[in-house]
Nucleic acid binder design. Sequence first.
DNA 1: CTGTTAGCGCTTTCAT
DNA 2: ATGAAAGCGCTAACAG
Lengths: 341, 341
Amino acid sequence: MTGIKALAQHLDLSIGTVSRALNGKPDVKAETRRRVLAAAKELDYRPNHSGRSLRHGRTNTVGLVLETGSPSTLAGDTFFMHLVDAMQETLAEEGLDLVLLPCRSADDPIEFLRRHVTRRMVDSIVITATRRQDERIAMLLEDGTPFLALGRSETPGAYPWIDLDFAGAARDSVDALVRLGHRRIAIAAPRRDVNLAHIYMEGYRDALAAHGLPVDEALILRASGSENGGVQVAEALLRLEDRPTAVMLGQELMAIGLYSHLAQVGVQPGRDLSVIGFRQSPQLRFLSPALACFALDVRALGKEVGQAVMALSADPVAARGIGRVWPLEYVPAPSVQPPVR
Amino acid sequence: MTGIKALAQHLDLSIGTVSRALNGKPDVKAETRRRVLAAAKELDYRPNHSGRSLRHGRTNTVGLVLETGSPSTLAGDTFFMHLVDAMQETLAEEGLDLVLLPCRSADDPIEFLRRHVTRRMVDSIVITATRRQDERIAMLLEDGTPFLALGRSETPGAYPWIDLDFAGAARDSVDALVRLGHRRIAIAAPRRDVNLAHIYMEGYRDALAAHGLPVDEALILRASGSENGGVQVAEALLRLEDRPTAVMLGQELMAIGLYSHLAQVGVQPGRDLSVIGFRQSPQLRFLSPALACFALDVRALGKEVGQAVMALSADPVAARGIGRVWPLEYVPAPSVQPPVR
DNA sequence: CTGTTAGCGCTTTCAT
DNA sequence: ATGAAAGCGCTAACAG
């Protein structure tokens, strides 16, 4: 015999009483509770998760879907780890556990999600790398699974999301560059349908318009959101006839490839071409000259996400439709200088 | 009503029959099975995970413990993501799911593990960043939870592990350097108690001995396993009176900080100081001159780990004591050159 | 305050 | 080939 039954037998009590004692319910004599707790410790009793969730209909576990394989995840690695670390801090306070659900690159994200949602291994889900049109959201809405989207989407419906202020980052980038005299500003956005690329791009267009500057489609570059993408961007930039005086990058790792390729051909960031990166990341700290980019408080964000998830479990309906944009702070650096030409 | 009961009622069958039909058991009329499967699809029936595991005593889920916060995880992150991706490929074939259990930096690893093991949310566990003396192993052994250690340990007991051949990497590094004429070879190892640092170091000592070279303790540097650690290493190297002609790094990211600091003071890797990195990583591809380091087939490793985990579930006892060292291949590059002095 | 009991969703005998 | 029923471990409602 195992589990609570063994414990009850050992104590010569009913399993009901033992359960109540263990779960801090009232109507248990102090002395009895003490005995039960002691015995539980002694016999190393640990409640079976499946039994409990079957009974409760809850698992007290939150799942965060991580797309292994997608450049954006691979890139944001330290970002996600720090985020997760902070999320847990909040969730732990409420006794919630967090598990990461790695979605294989080979897997269909919908199928993957369905499999997990369905099995009710987790009570609620956090999806990441939100797409502009995101089937996962439609599915989760239809399914009724409480979820939070890390990143906005244009998929209609009432659901909570938290997103970084990429439009603001684009605007601040353009503003900073224009203030210094730049007029031809290129932008590199990752090719994927991840919505942040779209939002970043729109922010760029709007900001140019606000400054009365034309949008030159030739200056809008698409590349993969990785170091290699940065190389491609550099090559494309150097190929342009009327070369821009500045470029803003829509993915943090691009800066590494860009710097590398520019160095090879003797073009110096800042002096010859101003560069503004994306999310600040430890990996970028060693670029020279230092890269202007956007800082955020990952820990605070993680806690906020944790809060949002808890609101989700507490009251899925109330949590609906709550969207929050998280600020990004421009950090100037020598990679941005007045244009020479 | 929900679940299999609803399905059975809809079909006007007993839940027993439905269950058998669903699970491909014999003794179900072909026609009936067809009907059941069709109805399951139509009603979007999905078995409840808790119910199933409660019945089976298994969850068909494997947990991989990830230490968020530890530099080694944060660093090797793309490594882990690729590994996980490949692992899943193997596990999926057997219908096993993989979840990542992020262990907060603030959490006690033992406590964390116990909580999860305890709840039997996963059937087996993969631990990472194995320590030289690893309490987790002792705990899991005592507990009887099937587990696999990614990384060797000196903690006694019969348990399966897979580790990269860091001793071999150290030996190959020393060999390559000595062959070129290097005699004073420094080594930088991360400070943490993670066993690989120890093994790498021992490999270094042994290789020097094999070449009849003395071990100069002044050339053994300790630093954090991060970019910053690399900076510290560079500083320490430049401070040495009788400067070594080469350095080998015990953590991949160190190379970034090292290169950065060397560049600042005008010391060129390869020409002025030979450098051999650790695990090959996309992040290092843009270092110039290219860094000599150690390549491995992460996908193949992932599959191997997946296999090992499956063996674990199939027969925990048979899987015991199986240790495997995974080869690392030295990739020469211009960061290694004959010494000038 | 404690014991008894029903039942969460599922699989698996054991009858029929 | 199918149905009935037991029971996995647990909690909660009810009875005493």
